[in-house]
Simulated scan of single mutants.
Amino acid sequence: MLWARFRLGSDDDRAERWPSPTPELTVDGNWSLVHDPRDGVTKFSRNQGLIALDALRSNPARPYGDAYLRMDTFAWAADVADQAVALKGGGYQPRYRCDGVLVYGDGAELEDQIQPLLDAGGARLTRIGGKLAIVPGVLRYSVKTITEFTTGQPLELVRWRSSDDLYTEAVARYPAPDRAYESAETPVYVVPGAQAADGGVAKRLTLDLDFVTDHRQAQRLAKIAVMRSRMQRQVSGS
């Protein structure tokens, strides 16, 4: 809850300065108080990676201890979120910021409840050696080529996705500060050559980003989402 006191002036011209009975405020605060595993300091931050980590460690439903988390991956995600992205209009901004209020509810899996925080950075959770880890939304190159594997089960290769899972364009919906945080939509991003390759009409992916308030970040995430939908090759084995 936020309390505010205003000096309204005289009653004669107050209605001109305050045309609505309840003033509308735009408040810029210190955002989330989170622990940063990179330097061990607790600080206010909008860093998407740090906020996702804090949600896992501090939630009221099932808080994770550090022993059950791959902290190095969350440090990596925090570094990615802090990367400076050049803007067309000049200047830079952090790659992934996370703005909003998360309300935990009963009856839902924790990982489902924090999904909007992950979406704000194009990230996903995974498990490595029984520990929960995060994979940030950033280009990653191959680090190893596997030539030997166990003989328990053969490798399973899936080459093509179903056409229902292939999208040719994408938009993102996000709360826009310049519209009193009402929902706004980014321009449509069209994957070059996708519709011609798939045939038929365009198929649009709509991405809801409840914790993104910057249209440039939302546009980058929409592009990532639609390009991921077109990644065809999958490999699994044991």
Rank of each mutant, 00 (worst) to 15 (best):
F74G: 00
Q234G: 02
S236L: 07
F74I: 06
A81L: 01
V235Q: 03
D198E: 15
V103C: 07
D13R: 15
R161K: 13
V201A: 04
Q153S: 13
G105W: 06
T150G: 14
P136H: 10
A81H: 01
G107W: 00
G193Q: 15
Q232G: 05
G199T: 14
L166E: 09
L166H: 11
A78D: 01
L8N: 11
L69Q: 04
M227N: 15
D208R: 01
G105C: 11
R57Q: 08
D198K: 15
A67L: 10
D106H: 09
V143G: 14
L132R: 04
L166A: 04
G29H: 10
Y181G: 08
I114D: 00
S58K: 12
R17V: 09
Q195F: 08
Q232K: 02
V201K: 13
I128T: 15
I134S: 00
T42K: 10
V190I: 09
D112A: 07
V143S: 09
V212N: 04
E182F: 08
Y167W: 15
A52N: 10
K131L: 11
A81V: 07
E24L: 15
E148V: 09
S229G: 14
Q219D: 10
G100W: 13
A84Y: 09
A86N: 02
G40L: 13
T126A: 15
L209R: 04
L207I: 12
D39S: 12
S10M: 06
R220N: 07
A84G: 12
S183V: 08
G129K: 01
Q219C: 00
V158Y: 11
S142L: 15
Y167A: 08
V80D: 03
M1Q: 10
V188Y: 01
D72W: 13
T150M: 03
Y104E: 07
G137V: 14
G107T: 05
R124E: 09
K223Q: 03
L205T: 06
L221Q: 06
P94T: 02
G137N: 10
V212W: 03
M71D: 11
R97K: 05
S163Y: 11
V41D: 04
R161C: 03
Y68V: 08
E148L: 09
M231N: 14
V212T: 14
